[in-house]
Amino acid sequence: MKTKKINKNMVTNILYPVIFGAIILILCQTQIMHKILGTDVFTLPLPSRIIEIISENIPKIMVNVKATLIVSVGGLIIGSLLGYLLAIIATVFPKGGAGGLSVAAAFNAIPIVVIAPIFNNLTKGISSDASFRSMIAKTLVVTVFCMASMSINAYRGLNELPPFSVDLLKSYAAGNFTIFKKLRLPNSIPYIFIALRVTVPGCIISGVVCEYFAEYVIGVGRQIRENIVTAQYATAWAYITVACIMGIIMYIILLIAENVLLKGRKS
């Protein structure tokens, strides 16, 4: 029974996406995709060319990957922690808290392209080092994106409790802190993963997008922009591929963590 479930999950989570990705690659390599889209190999380079560029520029790519990861993972961690904290505050103070979460939801709706320049201006005075200033501005954008999603989902996890579960703990004279520790916190874990399933790939995307507008020229996103501006489409596509790989690896790490931490729970 368990083996069947694992096999089914492996098929839906791994096999189908791999088959789909392979089909796209074959269509591109054989240029069938180019005919379908009415484009050429200059605008949409062949996968073999993209791989060649990546393998020739690994040290340079790694510098940019590191810069993007610092921003994306940093923003993800800080945003998730702040989002969870906001959810706790909203749970402790339900009257004002619900309003606070509405504000968080509203923040979530603001496009990154709008927030990024605002944070660039906001962080202008914090340091004389442009790379540091830029990194803080980008991290703040990712933080806002991750915080909103986490706070809304974590709030649900902290408050949508099984019927009678609070009564049960109260009958054993449990106080609010014990109820939080024994019930609300573990109940919120699946909801944390619901948020992370959005924010983990999202933190890479938002990190990459806000690099377009950043003051300091570094990061995978910035390289995509610079190469498109200079019509180096093959190199731009190499960085796009790297951004995709980063997102996929982080998502796989998330799925593994989810399998470990949600072990035994009803799916």
Binding site: P162, P163, F164, S165, D167, L168, K170, S171, Y172, A173, K182, L183, P186, N187, I189, G264, R265, K266
Partner: peptide
């Protein structure tokens, strides 16, 4: 009596924590 933890309660639903064995 509640603070001395002398009650045992069984509810309409089992109220089991799904994350615990």
């Amino acid at each position: 009596i509640r603070l001395q933890k002398k009650f045992g309660i069984v509810f309409q639903s089992p109220v089991l924590y799904e994350w615990r064995t």
